[in-house]
Design a protein around this nucleic acid. Structure first.
Lengths: 195, 195
DNA sequence: CGCCAGGTTGAAGCGCTTCAACGTCTGTGG
DNA sequence: CCACAGACGTTGAAGCGCTTCAACCTGGCG
């Protein structure tokens, strides 16, 4: 049960949920194991779950219809929430495919259970608001980094902020997230190490 | 009073607010006129107002501390809401400066009045949720366009989606929003017209 | 008229892209 | 135990588009 403790701790950090608040939700969380490549939520389906990652890394990506290339829009790593926000919050079909890029363990909760928590409890309602605000913050931060920072700076930012992602994730997923091609990331890394 | 009618219409379109719902808010909206260059909300101040633009265009920008260059993060145009979302929603100091880039007319509402409407009325609560979701959608869309589309495509998208912005706004504001330099936009425009 | 803001153009440069070749490591089957 | 294949990463060469800096054009306005 250490994953649940872990989750309870993360939720109290994130939204000030007490262990009592958490208890109300405890039997709603189901542990799911994912293997590398498994989908958390498929393209064009409505996302019904919000996940908390105990272990592993996920990505949301879009496939270019012409070239078939995949591009990563978001990465989600350990002790974070994984969810394609727009689809989950609005209960609409998702633009992305969201999948595990390493083997992973997730505790997940159903959207309806979560909504019932919102109704029942002020603390959970607060969680919902913070979730939306966080989602917005993530998107804004990504916008600003693409607008203001060079690929090299974005790479260094990512190392600093999410070093755990570099453990098991192939670099081509990272270059895709940074908005550049594999060989470019290679050269950036070389440039940095040459200094 | 045609601006208020206009607002009432826009709000019913946006969030299904009826004219009764709107009446509850009517005396909370104040009309403010801005001249080109006037600030809607200054850098590092907490934004206290949400505005509805009857006329004109606004921008939110960040100033590069090293070079002094300004870069536009968002543009807001007629019959849209103008608000630096993060600052307004979380009531925290704003990363941006938000200012009029043409002469403008705005109807604006105080954050406390808006919160009181949320409390009083389910329809207004819904407005609040849609506002947050819209903010999120705008940010995501911007992320994706920077990640997936070329400057030329972004330019064509902007013409298609917000032609009204091109009426009075100097092109260097537009190039800044697109994430490119003035001369680059010039060449893109030439390239397009040469075809 | 002359100034200034806004926009275009030229030339040089840099960084990312593209395509292709080549390492390297890992796992798998003979 | 070796051989080979496949996945991943690096490197080279050529190209393209955006940047930068500077010059220049245009229209509006005092």
């Amino acid at each position: 049960m250490t994953e649940l403790d872990n989750l309870a701790f993360a939720l109290s950090e994130f939204a000030g949920l007490t262990s009592e608040d958490f208890l109300e939700s405890e039997n709603m969380w189901k542990r799911i194991d994912y293997q590398k490549g498994d989908c958390f939520n498929e393209y064009r389906t409505v996302c019904k779950y919000l996940g908390f990652i105990s272990k592993g890394v996920f990505r949301s990506y879009i496939t270019d219809e012409k070239t078939g290339d995949e591009k990563n829009v978001f990465l989600y790593s350990e002790n974070q929430i994984v969810v394609p926000f727009t689809s989950f919050i609005n209960q609409v079909p998702c633009n992305y495919c969201t999948e595990a890029i390493t083997d992973a363990e997730v505790l997940r909760i159903n959207v309806y259970d979560l909504l019932s928590l919102y109704k029942k409890s002020h603390a959970w309602e607060r969680f919902g608001r913070l979730l939306a605000q966080t989602a917005f913050g993530v998107a804004i931060e990504r916008t600003e980094s693409l607008l203001f920072r060079t690929p090299e700076e974005r790479y260094l930012d990512l190392i600093k902020q999410h070093p755990e992602i570099f453990d098991n994730v192939p670099l081509y997923h990272i270059s895709s997230y940074l908005g550049i091609q594999g060989p470019s990331l290679s050269r950036i890394r070389k440039r940095i190490s040459d200094e």
